[in-house]
Amino acid sequence: MIALMFFTPLNERIQLTYRMLEIQSYLKQLESYLTRADRVFEEEARRYGCSEEKAKKALKSIKGFFLIEPVSMDPVGIIKRLEHLLKTQEDRVDDFIREVAVNASEAERSNMKNVLAANLALDIIYRVVRHIFLLAKKTKNYFYMVQLYMYLPEIMRIARSYFRALIPLKEGIPIGDSLGPLVAFKLGNGSKWREVAKNVIAYEREASGRKLIIIKAKGPGGEVGKPGDAVEKIVKEHDGKVKMIIMVDAAVKLEGERTGEVAEGIGAAIGDPGPEKYKIETVATEYGIPLVAIVVKEDITEAITAMPREVAEAADRVVERILDIIKKKTSEGDVVIIAGIGNTIGISQ
C-alpha cells in the first residue's frame, strides 16, 4: 500500500483531486462575487432610468473589454501612443455609461464608471482563474493546479477587495485612495478654485507669504482627472518659476506597516499607467523643480474600499507636514504646487 502511494502517480492524483475540489469552491465564490457585481451595476442603471433588459444587454456587451498596449519594440513616442489609447478607452466608457445611466448627474455617472471598473476587474479575475483551472483539469497537470493553488489566497484577497469596493463606489463614499484629494480639500477649502485641466481643479491661497496652488480631481464623483496636464499648465503659466511640487498620494503598505503611516520621499507620487507621471517628471526636469512625495500607507483593500478612520485622520498630519516643508524649504513670495493625487469620490471642492 505504502509502495503504491509513494512510487506510483496515485499520490499525485489524490492530491490533484483534493486541490481541484478546493479550487472549484473558490471559483464558485468568485462567480458569486461576479453575479452580485452584475446585480449592483444593473440596479444602478435602473435607478438612473435604464430598463432591466437594456442594462443586462449593455453589461453583457462590455464584458471582456480590453486595451491593447502600444508596441514597445520601438519605444519612441510610446507615452503619447499610450495616452491616446487611454483617452479612446475613457471616451468609450463615458459613452457607454451615458447610454446606460440616462438620468444620472455628472458625479453619479463617474461613480457608475467606478462600479463598472470593479465589475470588469472581477470579471477578468474570474476568467483567468477559470482558465488555469480548466487547463489543469484538461491536461491533468498537477503543477498548473499547484501554482494556481499557491496564488489563490492573494487572488481571493484582491477579488474580495473589488467586491467590497462595490458599495462605497456605488454610494459615493470616499475610499482609501481618496487621501490625496482629501488633503487638497483640507488645504484649499474656502479658497477660490478654477478648472485647469479635464476634471482637475486648482485652488489658490497664501500661506506664510507663499503662493500655494493646490490641485485635485473635480468631485464629488469618482474621478482621478489629468493631474499631469494640470501641473504642466500651471508651471508654464508661471514661466517655470515654481519653487517646489509636492505630491500627496496613498501608497500600498508592506505587511507589518501601520495603516495611516505617513512617509516622505522624492519623485512623482502617482500610480497612473504612465502618461500623467511622465508629464509631471518632464516639466519638473525641464525647469529644475524639486519633486517631493508624501504618501500615506494602506493595504490594497483599504485603498479601494471605504476610507479607514486611520487614513482619514492621517490627512491632518499630512497637511501639517506640507506646511512645515513649505516653511523650511521655500521663501516668502515663492510659488508651490501641491497635487492631491487619487480618486476624489465623495470629496467635492
Partner: peptide, 28 residues
C-alpha cells in the same frame, strides 16, 4: 453616512442654525 453625503457638503448646524460642513467621511 447617508447616500448623497460628501466631504464639502453644506448643512445647517443643529445647535446654532449656522453654516456647517461635512469635513470627514470614514469607516470603522
Amino acid at each position: 453616512f447617508q447616500r448623497g453625503d460628501y466631504v464639502g457638503k453644506e448643512e445647517k448646524c443643529k445647535k446654532c442654525g449656522g453654516k456647517a460642513m461635512v469635513t470627514l467621511i470614514y469607516s470603522e
